[in-house]
C-alpha cells in the first residue's frame, strides 16, 4: 500500500503548527515597551538601588521586604549609600511610580508576567482611573 497522500497531509499540518509564530505575528507591529517615569521618579534620579539591580531583581527585593515586614516587623530598609526607606510597596514604590499602567504593566504585559502583588495591593489610590 502507498499512503503518500496521507503522509503529505500530516506533514503539512506539522509544518503549519511549527511555523505558528511566524504567521501569527504577521502584519502586527509590536514595539518594545518603554517604562515611563513620573516627574517625581525622574527628580529622585535613583531608585532604592541602582537601575540595573532594580530591573533584574525588583521582584526579589519586594519578596525580601514582604518577609521582613510581615514576619519580622522590620520596616526600615537601608541601601548601600546609607539612605533609609520604608519597606512598603504602596507607600514607597508606588509613591514615585504612581503610574502603574505606564511603568509596571507595560513590561509585565509584554513579557506575559502576571505578578501577584496586585492581588492584595490595589493600585495606588493617588492614581486616577
Amino acid at each position: 500500500m502507498n499512503d503518500k497522500n496521507k503522509i503529505i497531509a500530516g506533514l503539512i499540518i506539522f509544518g503549519v503548527i511549527i511555523t505558528f509564530p511566524l504567521w501569527y505575528n504577521m502584519g502586527k507591529a509590536s514595539p518594545v515597551p518603554e517604562p515611563e517615569l513620573t516627574t517625581t521618579a525622574k527628580a529622585a534620579k535613583q531608585c532604592v538601588r541602582e537601575t540595573e539591580y532594580m530591573t533584574a531583581e525588583h521582584m526579589q527585593l519586594l519578596d525580601v521586604w514582604r518577609d521582613s515586614v510581615v514576619r519580622y516587623g522590620k520596616r526600615i530598609y537601608v541601601n548601600s549609600s546609607g539612605k533609609e526607606f520604608d519597606m512598603s510597596l504602596s507607600n514607597t514604590c508606588l509613591d514615585c511610580h504612581s503610574n502603574k499602567a505606564e511603568f509596571c504593566d507595560r513590561c509585565h504585559t509584554y513579557a506575559s508576567v502576571d505578578p501577584y502583588c496586585w492581588d492584595c495591593h490595589i493600585d495606588n489610590p493617588k492614581e486616577k482611573e
Binding site: F20, N25, K28, A111
Partner: peptide, 8 residues
C-alpha cells in the same frame, strides 16, 4: 511561545 507571540 510567550517570547514569540505578541500579544500573548
Amino acid at each position: 511561545l510567550r517570547f514569540f507571540l505578541e500579544p500573548v
